[in-house]
């Protein structure tokens, strides 16, 4: 009896959702402190530079632009459990812009899905951390991506399955602004709205750069918000580097019924590293030693 009394007192310290989540096999990590979340975003940035530098290749630009988005999703929003990465009732994340895997791998490692040490093996022949995310190899990766344009359809499939099973799972899908030039994205957007997938939230990382230059110059996708709106989405425009705005947008998305939500996140490609910011050339190349040191120094100073 004494044991149960102590347990009861201990449990009272936590809110009901936390306990419910624990009982459902979901972890209760939910950081509400903005500064703390920003620290995670900064850590993700440092991990990105470390990983791309040690691999000698990779995609730093678009990885750096989604650091806050991933910090908020993995440490504030998503119901996931690092001890049970395949839990059926977990929320799902599809990184449709799969080349920005270093950001995802960092978030997963920081969340405890695998040892942070592994980040240094990125793109190595014996590593589980492939150039693009592999759901078979990496704990916490919900979807293998890489060939652009396919992730939103896959996320729709997950949202459909969740509705069939009545699980109440939320599915997040991060797309690049260049990526949405792919026709399949708009086939999928029709599906999200047609099947009223209100458990789906698309985040468009709108950094306005793709490999060949500015999105506006290469193949304009604008107006992104109006496009998604006309396809039947609830649309929320946010500053993709503002944690408070991101949290508010995700909370707002949860309240939307009968249609999917698209969050258009206005971001800066290469955010946090002065010489990478807004430079298309940093889409897919690794820094040399000098650049690496400078980048790490700059990111250290942010903290």
């Amino acid at each position: 009896m004494v044991f149960y009394a102590i347990l009861f007192t201990k449990l009272q310290k936590y809110d009901k959702t936390y306990i419910k989540n624990i009982l459902k096999g979901r972890s209760g990590v939910k950081i509400k402190n903005i500064e703390e979340l920003q620290t995670y975003a900064n850590k993700i940035r440092k991990d990105i530079i470390e990983a791309v530098y040690s691999a000698g290749s990779g995609h730093p630009g678009g990885s750096l632009s989604i650091a806050e988005i991933l910090a908020v999703l993995y440490f504030n929003q998503m119901n996931i459990d690092e001890k049970n990465p395949k839990a059926k009732e977990r929320d799902r994340l599809v990184l449709s812009k799969g080349h920005t895997s270093p950001a995802l791998y960092s978030a997963l490692a920081l969340r405890g899905f695998f040892e942070e040490e592994k980040l240094k093996t990125f793109r190595n022949i014996e590593s589980i951390l492939q150039g693009h995310p592999d759901m078979v190899k990496v704990p916490g990766v919900d979807c293998s991506t890489g060939s652009l344009g396919q992730g939103l359809s896959i996320a729709n499939g997950m949202a459909i399955a969740s509705k069939l099973d009545n699980e109440g799972i939320r599915v997040y899908c991060i797309c690049g602004d260049g990526e949405i030039e792919e026709g399949q994205i708009w086939e999928a957007a029709m599906t999200s709205a047609h099947y009223k997938l209100d458990n789906l939230c698309v985040i468009v990382d709108n950094n306005n750069l793709q490999i060949d230059g500015k999105v506006t110059d290469v193949m304009s996708v604008y107006p992104i918000d109006e496009k998604f709106k006309s396809f039947g989405f609830e649309v929320i425009n946010v500053d993709g580097h503002n944690i408070a705005e991101l949290i508010q947008a995700f909370e707002q998305a949860k309240k939307v019924k009968g249609k999917p939500t698209a969050i258009i996140a206005n971001t800066i490609k290469g955010k946090g590293v002065s010489f990478m910011e807004n430079q298309a050339e940093w889409h897919g190349k690794a820094p040399n030693e000098e650049q690496y040191k400078q980048a790490m120094q700059e990111l250290e100073n942010i903290k």
Partner: peptide
């Protein structure tokens, strides 16, 4: 791709 998502 949607079929792939459902199968997960």
């Amino acid at each position: 791709s949607t079929a792939a998502g459902v199968s997960t």
